[in-house]
């Protein structure tokens, strides 16, 4: 374990949308932020996505808009640097990385993001066993990389999209709604119709929770202009036949009849999961999730147990990219205000 001490003005933990937006705001407020990223590449989950709902804007473009100004200002981004813990220090804050490096900062914005639900935990959907079952994240990565999926359009007649995989499900311990999967499913359904125009696309949902601006309109567009079928019913099981096609079973709850259907491939809309960091908050969430709990008091929603650490983005709970970015900006401002109030003392 090294005992190297480095003086940094402000640390940003995580280089996803929330962290990058926070760093940009800190920069605009005259601070010199330093970003720590656990992974090899910057951008968080955003770096793996293809196009973003509801407007089909390229994810790479948004990432460039966030990283560009930081590069220009020579903001340091330390990749493969995982922050393990933080504690108060006479200089402000002592940050310890997984490799044992210690860093002193005036304050920090914590934006460590979420983890994707591991679809193998829903064994009845056969992810990892059936080759024609993908997750929504797999689809984004494949489309971002190659612009296509590994299925020949002549073979694809029916595509199934399953909502709420790992969300609103006591059986996997996640009772909360992951918020973005419904609209992402509508978006991916349209993308599937673009890739496979002669195929039928079926979205199986429990409730459609399309809360954001332009989301309801995209749903309408999917129904009307892209002929996407929405069937209300949670899929109970998938089974692979000898040709690798997927046999789906559900109840079509709008007619009140059990339904089965053969699908050529299936996309599972995986939800979001959190991770607790006891040094940021000891409190438990009322929904039992492991996201970082924060004061749900409207005005102090970026605060943590450490006064000079603000928390932002999807590490607090399921969040869209826009919401994560706005929360990052808000956290940066809250930290700025705190540092000013301390300097005045």
């Amino acid at each position: 374990m090294t005992n190297k001490q480095t003086q940094f003005p402000i640390a940003v933990i995580g280089s996803g949308p929330a962290g990058l937006a926070a760093a940009n705001t800190l920069l605009a407020l005259g601070h010199q932020p330093v970003i720590f990223e656990k992974e090899k590449i910057t951008g968080g989950k955003l770096s793996r996505w293809h196009q973003l709902f509801p407007g089909f804007i390229s994810a790479a473009e948004i990432q460039e808009q966030l990283i560009g100004p930081l590069k220009k200002a020579s903001v340091k981004i330390s990749t493969e640097t995982e922050v393990k813990t933080m504690k108060p220090d006479s200089g402000g804050l002592e940050i310890e990385t997984a490799s044992g490096e210690k860093i002193i900062a005036k304050g920090a914005v914590w934006a460590s993001g979420y983890t994707e639900f591991d679809a193998r935990r829903k064994e009845e959907y056969g992810y990892g066993l059936y080759k024609n079952v993908l997750t929504s994240a797999d689809v984004e990565e494949m489309l971002a990389k190659d612009g296509k999926l590994p299925f020949d359009s002549a073979d694809v007649k029916r595509i199934g999209i399953l909502h709420c995989v790992g969300s609103r499900d006591e059986k996997v311990g996640n009772t909360y709604c992951s918020k973005v999967c419904c609209i992402c499913a509508v978006k991916q359904a349209i993308e599937m119709k673009k890739l496979y125009p002669s195929a039928e696309v079926f979205n199986f949902y429990m409730d459609l929770r399309l809360f954001g601006k332009g989301y309801e309109e995209l749903y309408r567009e999917a129904q009307m202009d892209w002929q996407v079928n929405f069937i209300r019913g949670r899929v109970s099981e998938l089974a692979e036949d000898q040709q690798g096609k997927i046999r789906m079973k559900t109840e079509d709850t709008l007619t009140g009849v059990p339904m089965k259907m053969t699908l050529d491939f299936v996309i599972l809309m995986v939800g979001m999961e959190g991770k607790r960091f006891s040094f940021l908050s000891e409190n438990k969430n009322t929904d039992g999730s492991d996201f970082i709990s924060y004061p749900e008091n409207f005005t102090g929603e970026n605060q943590t147990a450490l006064p000079n650490v603000m928390v932002a983005g999807a590490c607090k709970g399921p969040s869209t990219i826009v919401d994560a970015m706005n929360d990052g900006k808000s956290a940066a401002l809250a930290l700025h205000q705190y540092l000013i109030s301390q300097a005045e003392k």
Binding site: L208, R220, Q223, M224, Q227, F230, D252, T255, V257, P258, M259, K260, M261, T262
Partner: peptide, 27 residues
């Protein structure tokens, strides 16, 4: 009493959707 999508005749439904596309918007 099961709906087996693979075996049903969808011609009537397709014709209906063709003639009155607004029916797709039903929630």
């Amino acid at each position: 009493r099961e709906t087996n999508w693979d075996k049903l005749d969808h011609r009537f439904a397709d014709k209906l959707l063709d003639l009155e596309p607004s029916v797709r918007l039903c929630v």
